[in-house]
Design a binder for these strands. Structure first.
Lengths: 211, 211
DNA sequence: GGGCTAATGAACTAACTGGTACGTTAGTTA
DNA sequence: TAACTAACGTACCAGTTAGTTCATTAGCCC
């Protein structure tokens, strides 16, 4: 009964959060159908019953996981301030933020893969995500416009294409590190090569805008 | 009994191949744990029993699928001849071949995703794959060396990094088209934008080598 | 054409899995 | 302090799933 003994108390919010945390890891690691409701429950201090109590079922739990993961990564992106930087430096900075994010949140990357494997059918139920993401591209678009105005960047480059370029590089490095490592014996996440890839991405993106 | 009626005859090789074809599609579409042995069998002209007869089990069937998929894509790559092209054109050509391949073989892309979701643990059992893949990079390395010699390309760019860059762009476009489409309302595989992305990749890669 | 074996099919099973019925308890409120 | 409800736990169920058993057949070899 005492808090000192670490025994259970009623705490709805903590129970919910603990389920979300463990479920994020399970879904990211094993995919939607591979994740086991029993396993998720076993890894928390609560029981399977609570998944149905708080979320309704496996699918709704997955949806909650997905929504929170996207919300977190976009919230962090919004905190970046690039207005005080020259266009080229700002562009590089934005690329680096994505680079750092992908590396720091492998579970998010895996969830993106899981969701694509299901043709993004769950994502359509989370309308909020669209707003979150388009704001990230709007930021990028501003930087490109600024660069065009001062002659740093060439015309005719679409912000969404640049976003795709940045994402693809960062995503691949994290998502496919296992097959890439197995086939070419190179660990894309080796800390010693981290700066090299970060610089490479920046060069690539600014280079593309200045051709 | 007659071949004209389309009735069943004994044909070990055809049975094996049919299982492989259907299994490729099932594993690509639903992932390893999501794929159902019964479903694979139901979609062929044979029965589940044959999966165990020819392959041993679900896992060995998956392994056979993976090995064949990689063998096919690398075999096609080896047929490309770039010796008669200038380094920049050769590099662009190699990028385009990968681009075309990824687009034409979405099942392969999905299998790569499935295998990464499992930390490439099956891939280690298919030693043959390493040889196949390193030959693709060797080809790229030759082109880069040639370009350096004639002053077209700058020094200090690693062939494997270029391969990664090309792969990441092509992979992302196919693998993440669903979430990307849902979030930004842009179909990365829209035929009307195909040439744009193909050119973009070529510009990107040759641009990176000439900075 | 009779024996032999690779190839095949139907039915079964043991274990698993998402979901639920139903009873219990902690903490709040009057 | 008694009533009340949100929060929780146990035990179970019905459907599913990978894998197996065992009998059967097609086609080849002599």
């Amino acid at each position: 009964m005492s808090a000192l003994t670490g025994e259970r108390r009623r705490d709805a919010e903590r129970t919910r959060l603990e389920l979300l945390d463990v479920a994020t890891d399970e879904f990211a690691e094993r995919g939607y159908s591979g994740a086991r409701v029993d396993e998720i429950a076993a890894r928390t201090r609560t029981t399977k019953r609570m998944i149905y109590y708080y979320f309704g079922g496996k699918e709704q739990l997955y949806l909650a996981v997905l929504e929170r993961a996207y919300a977190e990564i976009r919230a962090a992106e919004r905190t970046v301030d690039v207005d005080h930087l020259e266009p080229a430096a700002a562009l590089r900075r934005l690329a680096e933020v994505t680079f750092d994010h992908h590396e720091a949140h492998p579970a998010f990357i895996k969830l993106v893969g899981v969701e694509n494997a299901q043709h993004a059918k769950h994502m359509n139920h989370v309308a909020r995500l669209v707003d979150l993401n388009s704001s990230a591209v709007a930021l990028l678009d501003d930087v490109l416009k600024r660069g065009r105005r001062d002659g740093t960047f060439r015309d005719g480059v679409d912000a969404l294409d640049v976003h795709m370029l940045i994402s693809s590089f960062c995503f691949f490095r994290v998502a496919n590190r296992h097959t890439f490592g197995a086939l070419f014996d190179r660990d894309l996440l080796d800390p010693e090569r981290r700066e090299h890839y970060r610089t490479m991405l920046g060069d690539l993106v600014t280079g593309y805008l200045q051709i």
